[in-house]
Design a binder for these strands. Structure first.
Lengths: 226, 226
DNA sequence: TGGCAGTGTGTGACTTTGTCACATACTATG
DNA sequence: CATAGTATGTGACAAAGTCACACACTGCCA
């Protein structure tokens, strides 16, 4: 049961399906779920787990990733406000174990839904069903894009694109370690370090411990596409 | 409208959801769809297309794949009897363009469903909805496995596994070109040729033009997992 | 019957990426 | 200000991808 009216407002703002749904379902939704808070860097799902709940993220972000035999990681996608861990939903509905890891990055505020509600609503509520379908479809697209990236694109180009995408356009300074970049791209820290050093020598970025500043977005953009 | 009773039998045998569904829906399904035939090696979907129909495969197989900038290919998954091009469904329900290519491999016999029926049934028929959810979930798992493979596993090990998976246990002889293997694994023909030659020199396989014979499954299996 | 085009495979040189084993440097904390 | 933990740098090597060819096999037609 969710009581805080500010949270309810935020929920309805973030989750479009609550606006499409009829008032009865919304009441049911508000009454049958609860809000949880999770600090940053907390493991959420382990590979192989059976999921017992579905979380709809109101605030914060989570990272869904795979770990290879060698210990390397690759990020499959991220979940932000208005989204939910659709892999969880997928596992609930197809009754298979969760095939990856999930961890909170920013502290998370989320609505928790029991598997039985997930199933029941997906039978009865079109708005909810559409929401699930759309989300799972987008994840499938996301993951297909990841395949394309790792299978075909050179790491230096992917890295250039990564830097552009993940920096505020304002400051051009981003707080990241080489290791965290490597874990997102699915490569190794040494490779990232080498390429970053190249970029620095070409005057495209400057590097300090734990942070990178973009100095020449235009040339980075050329690098990322050439 | 499907009339051939043999086809109807086969349909109900292959597609479990028709067994769960009530008789009324089955009548509607049989009455509202039609069967098509497609020869081998026909393009089915182009990247970026809007899908106008969903195909449920009764017989034959299709390959869903990506093409990289360099022209290399990688297979995302295959579709066989009882399955359907869930990417199509996903595109229909989320109204996004198809993010890959699809081509028939074996000649295909399939049931064609219009987008409007796909949407309508997913609202009204639980059995159909469950079928779609389950299928899309499985594809998501498939594609995530592909990510894991290309990001983390060495090509020689993947190739060893590929040979074991794709040969009849009976004959141990498979008709494939090095190029087609490379396109499945997302690597280049030269790499495949080199590794196959290695395998041959180790006595694991023998190679002839257009075909490979497995000579030592056990050692191949060790190679694929080590 | 020999020539020829299309397809499939082999190979060497080179670049890029991943791995390993370290060295070094910065940062927070007692 | 010593020290543990974290972040980065580096060189040597192995694995994989690219490029530019050479060569071999198959089917077909003149």
């Amino acid at each position: 049961m969710i009581t805080d009216p500010a949270v309810i407002d935020e929920l309805i703002r973030q989750f479009h399906f609550l606006q499409c749904a009829d008032a009865d379902f919304v009441r049911q939704f508000i009454g049958g779920t609860k809000v949880i808070h999770l600090p940053a860097d907390q493991p959420i799902c382990q590979q192989g787990m059976q999921c017992s709940h579905l979380a709809l993220v109101i605030e914060g972000t989570a990272r869904i990733y795979k770990i290879g035999e060698n210990g390397r990681e690759i990020t499959l996608y991220r979940i932000g406000p208005g989204e939910s861990c659709i892999l969880t939903a997928s596992c609930i509905l197809s009754q298979k174990p969760f095939p990856a890891f999930a961890v909170s990055e920013q502290p998370i505020q989320a609505v928790i839904i029991s598997t039985s509600d997930v199933v029941r609503w997906s039978n009865n509520e079109q708005a909810w069903r559409d929401y699930l379908f759309r989300l799972i479809s987008e994840r499938l697209s996301d993951v297909i894009s990841v395949v394309e990236e790792v299978a075909f694109r050179r790491v230096d180009r992917r890295l250039a694109g990564y830097l552009l995408r993940n920096s505020d356009n304002g400051s051009s300074r981003m707080q990241v370690t080489h290791q965290s970049i490597a874990s997102d791209l699915g490569t190794s820290r040494e490779v990232v370090s080498r390429i970053l050093k190249d970029f620095e020598q070409q005057g495209l970025i400057s590097i300090t411990r734990g942070a990178i500043t973009l100095e020449d977005r235009d040339h980075l953009n050329i690098k990322s596409t050439e």
